[in-house]
């Protein structure tokens, strides 16, 4: 090596002193950019709304707030990164029931249910159970009668044990029937209805139904009616139980309370902006804010409920 060793050392020291200064001047959170890890690919409604919210948070907190997508492994990769990040409030993350609940219940994760602390659940994506328009049933009850009369019905969803599929199964169980088969689709679209691969799909975006006349919705997997499809009954209306494909903002478990409060306040303020509410309305999603405690409670409830369904489906 021709390069004198002290050169490297000097360089390292320079970098170090830069950081040394900032660390010494540590006064108030936040003073560095904040990153929000999204374990899913960019571009779905939850990702877009988080990016919009991040802009408002950034204005409010005075440091850049950036959404980073770390995808893969059913969301576990990103979720693990959030759980194992340094609990200083500079790494936050988005979670959905998959990585937050069902993967934990199935024992696929290294983190537990309480290793991620919810800032709050804030977004329900507009999932719909959709069927071909020419099917002879128009509600879950009629579908149940149809199946119980000896007809076969194939459910198309992401994976057999993915959350939308579990919810569709819980709905069926409560109606009193079971799907003949479940097939995994990726992406889930109304196309599979047309080719006859599936008879009922867990459609992730209600807007697809407005485009495709050959399909219609039976039930929305939400608590509130989807604004763009006001005629379709919700899971909560039909079965009297909460069910939604939510997204929440989380921090690592051991974030100091004062830092957590700063994040939480900025986030709630961002959610109140008109732009975000309007965006929710136009996509058919539902924007709200369920506080930390409420979110924790919902997660634990769901863990129990999904565990029952997972055990049933795998045995």
């Amino acid at each position: 090596m021709k390069l004198p060793k002290f050169g490297v050392k000097a360089a390292v020291m320079t970098v170090a002193t830069c950081f040394g200064f900032s660390a010494a001047a540590m006064a108030e959170f936040p003073e560095r950019p904040i990153q929000i890890i999204n374990p899913w690919a960019p571009g779905d409604s939850a990702d877009i709304v988080m990016r919009k919210a991040a802009e408002y948070m950034s204005e409010d907190l005075g440091v850049p707030v950036k959404v980073i997508n770390r995808t893969g492994g059913g969301g576990i990769i990103g979720a693990t990164a959030i759980a194992t990040a340094r609990p200083d409030g500079y790494t936050l993350g988005l979670l959905t029931p998959g990585p937050a609940v069902t993967q934990v219940v199935m024992g696929n994760t290294t983190y537990g249910l309480d290793d991620l602390k919810p800032v709050g659940i804030f977004w329900d994506s507009p999932f719909v159970l959709a069927v071909r328009s020419d099917e002879p049933f128009s509600s879950m009850k009629e579908l149940g009668d149809y199946v119980n009369a000896g007809n076969t019905v194939t459910l198309g969803s992401y994976a057999q044990l993915a959350v939308p599929s579990l919810l569709a199964n819980i709905a069926a169980e409560k109606t009193g029937f079971g799907y003949t088969r479940i097939i995994g689709l990726d992406p889930v679209s109304t196309l599979s209805l047309g080719t006859g691969d599936a008879d009922i799909v867990t459609l992730p975006d209600a807007r697809a139904l407005l485009q495709d006349e050959s399909a219609r919705g039976l039930l929305t997997l939400t608590n509130e009616r989807i604004s763009t499809l006001p005629d379709i009954p919700t899971f909560k209306e039909v079965y009297g139980e909460e069910a939604s494909l939510w997204t929440g903002l989380f921090t690592p478990r051991d974030v100091p309370q004062e830092v957590f409060d700063v994040v939480s306040k900025a986030f709630q303020k961002a959610l109140e902006q008109d732009e975000i509410q309007e965006y929710a309305k136009s996509t058919g999603a539902y924007a709200y804010f369920l506080d930390s405690e409420g979110s924790s409670k919902r997660i634990h409830n769901e863990a129990e409920r999904f565990k029952g369904m997972i055990d049933k489906l795998t045995n």
């Binding site: 390292v12 970098v15 170090a16 950081f19 040394g20 660390a23 010494a24 990153q35 980073i68």
Partner: peptide, 16 residues
């Protein structure tokens, strides 16, 4: 593209 903050730098920074 986001790279991790140099670990050594933050280590030295913390010891200051």
């Amino acid at each position: 593209i986001w790279f991790p903050k140099p670990w050594l730098a933050s280590l030295l920074a913390n010891s200051n």
